[in-house]
Amino acid sequence: MTRTFSLTLHVWRQKSAKQAGQFAKYIAANVSEHMSFLEMLDVVNQDLLAKGEDPIAFDHDCREGICGSCGFMVNGDAHGGHRGTTICQLHMRHFKDGEELWLEPWRSAAFPIVKDLAVDRGAFDRIIASGGFVSVPTGSAVDGNAIPVPKTEADLAMDAAACIGCGACVAMCPNSAAQLFTAAKVGHLGLLPQGQPERDRRVLAMVGQMTAEGFGHCTSTGECEAVCPKEIPIAFIARMNRDYLEASVKERPQANRGGSG
C-alpha cells in the first residue's frame, strides 16, 4: 500500500538578487512516499501554474545525484540532511504527514541568489580555472600504462574526485567556507603522479582564488563532511593545508631565462 500524505512548505521566494525575498506558504497535498523531493515540488509547481502563479524556481538536471545542479536547505540542512544524498535523490518516505518544511537557497555571499532557490555558483568554476587541472594539451599524453598508479592512491584520489560541486559544504558551513570543495580537487590531483609538476602552484592559486571569491575561513566544524552528498572526508582539508604550508615555505627553483630560446 502506498502511503500518501500532506506537508506544509515555507519556501523562500525572491525574484532576483536585486530584489528582497520572503517566505511563502504552500500546502503540498497527496504526496506519495515514492516521490522524490523534487517530484513533490514539481506537483506543487503544477498547481501554482494552474492558479496563474509563478512556479518555484530551483536548479536541477540529472535527478540522479551526479550533476550537482540541485540543492537547497530543508529545515536548515543542506539537501535535507540525509547521509550521502542529494535533494533530487531524497525520497518522501522519510517524511511524515503534517510536517512543516522550510526551504531556503544556499546562503553565502559568494553564491548570489539567481531566483528563489537557485543560486550562482560561478565562484566554484573560477577556483578550478585558477589551477584545478593538469596542464596537458590534447595529443601530448604518453601511454596510459606508462604512468603506474598504486591502487590505494588511485582509490583515494577517486574518493576526492567524486565531488559534484553542488555547494552544500559551503551552505552548511557557519563560516561559508569552501575548503572541502577546494581540498577535494587539490587532493585528487595531488595524490596522483600526473598532478605532481603543478602541485605547489595549484594549491597556492586555488586557495588564493577561494579567498578572493569571498568564502570564509575553515574552523574545522565538520558540517561540510556531514552534509556532503558524496561523503568526501574532511581529512582532505588537512591534506590541503599541509600542501599549502609546504608550498608557501618551499624554495622554488627559478630559472633566470625562459625556455623559449
Partner: peptide, 14 residues
C-alpha cells in the same frame, strides 16, 4: 592516454 594524463582516476590493479 589523454584522460590518464589529465588525472582521471581510472580503476587500477594493485
Amino acid at each position: 592516454d589523454q584522460c590518464v594524463a589529465q588525472g582521471v582516476p581510472f580503476a587500477r590493479e594493485y
